[in-house]
Design a protein around this nucleic acid. Structure first.
Lengths: 139, 139, 139, 139
DNA sequence: GTGGTCTAGACCACA
DNA sequence: GTGGTCTAGACCACG
């Protein structure tokens, strides 16, 4: 099961949220070449979006060379052609979001420490306190 | 100087980024009634944005009752009519972003602790280590 | 008025017929850079197809670098980046069709001369006998 | 050896190219009743196509009454039941292709005469100048 | 007015 | 079952 999160209300086109997140999963090595992607219909149902939206995301990723399709047999992660993200790129991607979070916090009167506290709480809600996903630290 | 940050590339309409952020500033009390807003031209120049975009944001905020115009004398924050954000609403707004940050981190192979570390670094870059904005904690 | 001809019944996706024909028009110099393309809606109406089909064709031509869009102001032919067709390429493109025509003629019992006769007749029907489009010979 | 030409890249389903061309061969009398068709495997190999595709084409032609199978003994052209193409139908079929050729030529800057010249050249390449298939003129 | 996105649902091709 | 294409119509962003 792919961990993809889409936001229906923030104005970012859904197909773009998908292409971005899948790109990141591939570039970070979480999705390895030859992995079978969920079918268009399955992913559409999982995310509660229209299948055509998934079709478009898959198509753009295919033209970008990140996915490929086997006739009538599904969609697969293409063998690595582009170089994966460097540590530097990852930091930049995440810094953008972290910065947005801090700014928003500031606007609402939250300081760093309260933000971080909130991040911890969200993390526990997402993964459960049981220590699941602990291995993420090292991957 | 207003702390507004816009992102030209993420697909979110600029006018909407503006209305949202200004709304938050007002709702959290950071922008108080009768404060004069920057002129359309000034803000457009500051943000490197088409003046029409600022016009639209101001217009929508005026319709919403958050701003008002004095003929020929500028745009001002309206007296508080709507209730400001509750603690609950603030948490929800920020949690959304925190969650998106955590998910993106997971996709790129970052765990909570490395994310938090990154948040601290971003914070220092934003405000400088010198302790500026220290007062944010208490507001 | 663009001379585009689509065939709803031959199984070739309409968007592909469009991209191919427009590509040829550009590559052969019949559509010059900075020419404004017909609007999505106008072309859809002219060809009696769904606007989304035209949207798709335009989008693919844009990612291919042959067209570009001005925000809210229409679609334009991009400055020539790719090299236009060589005489050789034109011949190859047309030879494929000519060959298909000859094969089909053969299957139906038509020899070369009757085929050529038919081509002449079609030509007159298309452009009228009055000599319109005579200048095509030299362009 | 059947003269069938398939195009893997133009989007027309292969099985349909096959059914169409075989239909034309039968309707024009080039394939006479009780002629044995090539085996599925042989034709698939000749055309470099998946055998299932040939199976499908044969199946549709069988349903249409143009072919029939002798159990374990191959596939045969059925006795003429449907009326063969009239002169009128042939012209229409060929005119479509001729028109497409002329339009494409126009887009690429070719006039009628150059198109016809090209048709003659293709014809010679296809059959050789030696006069093979000369009899086609009279069939 | 322009293009951009999305939905819902249809039909087709391929394995 | 898979993906591919198309339609009809909605709503949005931008000028």
């Amino acid at each position: 099961m792919l961990h993809l999160s889409i936001n229906q209300t923030d104005g970012v086109p859904i197909y773009r949220q998908l292409t971005q997140q899948i790109t990141h999963l591939i570039a970070s090595g979480r999705l390895t070449p030859e992995t079978e992607m969920p079918s268009v219909r399955a992913l559409a149902q999982q995310l509660l979006v229209n299948p055509n939206t998934v079709v478009r995301a898959y198509r753009e990723l295919e033209t970008a060379g990140l996915l490929y399709k086997k006739q009538g047999a599904g969609t697969y992660v293409a063998p690595q052609t582009a170089t994966p993200y460097t540590e530097e790129e990852c930091r930049r991607l995440l810094s953008e979001r972290a910065e947005a979070l801090l700014m928003e916090g500031w606007r609402l009167g939250y300081g760093v420490e309260r933000i971080i506290e909130l991040v911890r709480e969200c993390n526990e809600q997402l993964w459960g306190q049981g220590g699941a996903h602990k291995e993420e630290e090292s991957s």
